[in-house]
Design a protein around this nucleic acid. Sequence first.
DNA 1: CGTTACGTTGACTCCCGTCAAGATCCGTGG
DNA 2: CCACGGATCTTGACGGGAGTCAACGTAACG
Lengths: 248, 248
Amino acid sequence: MSLSHSSAEFTPCADCNIRYRAVCSTCDNDELAQLEEIKYYRTYDAGQPIMFEGDEMHFVGSVVSGAATLSRSLPDGRVQMVGLMLPSDFIGRPNRETVDFDVTAIQKVTLCCFRRKPFEAMVASTPHIGQRLLEMTLDELDVARDWMLLLGRKTAREKITFLLALIARRTADLHMTKVSEELPFEMPMSREAMANYLGLTIETVSRQMTALRKEGIITLAGSREITIPDMARLKAETGDEVQVGALN
Amino acid sequence: MSLSHSSAEFTPCADCNIRYRAVCSTCDNDELAQLEEIKYYRTYDAGQPIMFEGDEMHFVGSVVSGAATLSRSLPDGRVQMVGLMLPSDFIGRPNRETVDFDVTAIQKVTLCCFRRKPFEAMVASTPHIGQRLLEMTLDELDVARDWMLLLGRKTAREKITFLLALIARRTADLHMTKVSEELPFEMPMSREAMANYLGLTIETVSRQMTALRKEGIITLAGSREITIPDMARLKAETGDEVQVGALN
DNA sequence: CGTTACGTTGACTCCCGTCAAGATCCGTGG
DNA sequence: CCACGGATCTTGACGGGAGTCAACGTAACG
């Protein structure tokens, strides 16, 4: 038999790399012990589906490592990414029977899963978890609203440069490099995923990438190895910054 | 002195029309009494600003009647609506000092306000409120994600017909009319608000409305009085439905 | 009746999507 | 090791949908 996922080794919560950022970050030791009872790990390879829209939701859980996407589609096949789930992000919704978007691994991803029913019981009995979940959900809502501004009002170039700046910044944060100087990073997603994130076609994504390269705003080595020689110059293209030197 | 808002008569929570849907819906009598201590009403006329992005958030609260919008903007003035707040919806975010979008009344709106600090204390001490707030926030996130699909992937015509169907349905729900037959309703927002909702220009909105009128999909009496002779026909234009009769 | 805000319509432009052809990368197997 | 095939990415030609700019209509209101 070939499962679409595999189980991974058990890590004690105390040693977990997302211990202080995930839904469990405000739990005390007793609460962690309870969670440890109902948790298990799963990993999915890049490209593998994790859940399908309409499926029964058997578990909820946190992204421990890697990346997954949430996406919604129209009946004719158009797809829009609606969530990019990175380490510490929480997937699934308590008190909801079915999944309401497709969840897909875009990199090899490890999830810390909780069976839904016991988790719901814990949310009800453990205010800490509910409070943290509220905080995280409000943050996600904020992100979603910025994303709406991007989808509704930004040009293709602004969308692309915004995404590049976002990923570059996150990579820099992760590696503790300073943003001031030359910034090389790897794009964690395909052109198609970028297009679905930004509400564009892959052709437009590709053309914009080429244009940015030709203008020297980015350097490409292969399609995913990107260097940003001048972050300010990139940021100036996102539409988010006031243009200081602008005439009028 | 002319304030941008006025205070409204006090209504006991027990008599409130959003008693069973708002953030307080799961509160018991004691908890309601506590809320009643810190609540006050405010009304704003159509078009009036309620909060500005960046302002200190002095209060949070529920929409009791009327409608307000949340919107984000780019420095050059482009605007995207990111929330449409209707009766029972909750405005503001506990544990956040500043407002992060503009809040504007689009109809005469009455808010049931709670001073932020005491409300935060209640959220911390009253699990009921936090749980309800979590539920409502998750619902909003769902709405935001559908909205992202609309903004990123739908055509102008699909956007418009979706919005018309949405408002028509909500009006029908409110008046308990059956959706089967001819459905007249009033658009609660200007062409500009529609454009900001949909990520379009007012000209495109106007043109699409005219086109729909000429095709007999809607009837217009004035710019806001709309009748839908055949709901199925409107829905078929939204892109959300599988087209049963479609060849291939 | 003038003023002002709001909505409609037209002419034109251009950005981005569509369709199609190549190019590049990569894993698999002969 | 190289050939093959498929997936992914790039590039080009082209067209159309939606934006821009401008003029005009219409409704609301003092």
